[in-house]
């Protein structure tokens, strides 16, 4: 039974290893620490938003605003540093709480007015994207000694690998989110709400504050992803992160989390992002394939995983019947 629950996770992990193996066998330099560390640093921002998306989806919701929040926090970072001469850390100290407030507001709307998360976060997406564009239509270059220091911060791995600030930030966030979801009462409440929010309420789960916190956290993680994205691009741009919410959702699903909520693992999402990254790397190494093949393969994978989820939940229903036979 346990194995059934972990099955999607194992499949994703196996696919990841398989593709990595094939790549390593086909191309020189594919199976190297350099490629692995690049996977993390190139996808750090996606990994970070996907962590938040996992939380939201496990609670039975969805957050479409994260891509726009990435853009908004990037633009705000750029503006505060380049135009208003703030120190980056001061800028972050303003942006992160502001994002929390933004997410919390969406959470309030969702909980208090019983609105669909889809609609509320869609509105949030337009709002954040619009605001970012209003602040600056142009990309804002960031030139600050702090950013140079960040870019150099890190340590080398044997074989040309490099663990930079983005990867480290992600690792820290990963540990925190795993602790939160799998070892804290808050996490238990998130799963409970995803299972059945009415029952959760009757069992004494603080549904209101938990829902609000979930969306606040998702926005905070998106804002952090936006900041990490500026480390990567040295600029803030209002059109950054277009469609990234969908990439994050895809990664979460491929990582074995049920879209209906109540079930999934944080680590699965990481595997999902990495799998998407490896596909991309493979296509780059191959050279002859168009980069759109990444999308095609991810599309096929998504189909596969959704079918798998259906089959598995059917299976579980069957074992339930068998379970009741055992007793009654």
């Amino acid at each position: 039974m346990m194995s059934l629950r972990y099955l999607p996770l194992w499949i994703t992990a196996a696919l990841l290893c398989l593709l990595f193996g094939i790549g390593g066998w086909q191309f020189d330099g594919f199976a190297s620490l350099a490629v692995v560390s690049n996977l993390f640093s190139d996808n750090a921002f996606l990994l970070i938003v996907a962590l938040g998306m996992t939380l939201v989806i496990i609670s039975g919701g969805i957050d479409l605003s994260v891509g726009a929040v990435i853009a908004l926090s990037g633009v705000a970072t750029g503006l505060l540093i380049s135009q208003y001469q703030w120190h980056p850390l001061t800028a972050f100290a303003l942006i992160v709480p502001a994002a929390a407030l933004f997410g919390a507001l969406m959470g309030v709307l969702i909980h208090v007015y019983k609105l669909q998360p889809f609609i509320v976060t869609l509105a949030g997406m337009f709002l954040a994207r619009g605001l970012a564009t209003t602040l600056s239509e142009e990309s804002i270059a960031i030139d600050h000694s702090f950013y140079d220091a960040i870019a150099e911060f890190g340590f080398a791995l044997p074989g040309g690998g490099w663990v930079g600030a983005s990867t480290m930030i992600f690792m820290v966030l990963l540990v925190l989110v795993i602790m939160l979801m799998h070892y804290s009462r808050f996490g238990a409440c998130v799963y409970a709400i995803g299972g059945n929010s009415q029952s959760a309420q009757l069992m004494g789960v603080p549904v209101a504050s938990t829902t609000i916190a979930i969306y606040a956290l998702s926005s905070v993680l998106a804002a952090l992803a936006g900041i990490v994205f500026t480390f990567y691009t040295f600029s803030g741009y209002a059109l950054a992160g277009v469609g990234m919410e969908l990439d994050a959702i895809a990664a979460v699903v491929i990582g074995g989390t049920l879209l209906t909520g109540g079930s999934g693992f944080v680590i699965g999402t990481v595997l999902g992002v990495l799998l998407m990254g490896v596909i991309q790397t493979y296509i780059i190494f191959d050279g002859s394939l168009s980069s759109w093949w990444t999308k095609i393969v991810i599309g096929l994978l998504l189909f596969g995983f959704i079918v798998l989820q259906k089959v598995l939940s059917r299976r579980t229903a069957l074992t339930t019947v068998a379970g009741s036979t055992a007793h009654g």
Binding site: S184, Y191, S199, L202, M203
Partner: peptide, 24 residues
């Protein structure tokens, strides 16, 4: 009014999980 997706133990202790240093 229990949660089918959680384990039996989690259902029994939801909101009252034994913790150490804040961790379940």
């Amino acid at each position: 009014n229990l949660l089918p997706n959680l384990s039996v133990a989690q259902n029994l202790f939801l909101g009252h999980e034994p913790r150490r240093f804040g961790l379940i």
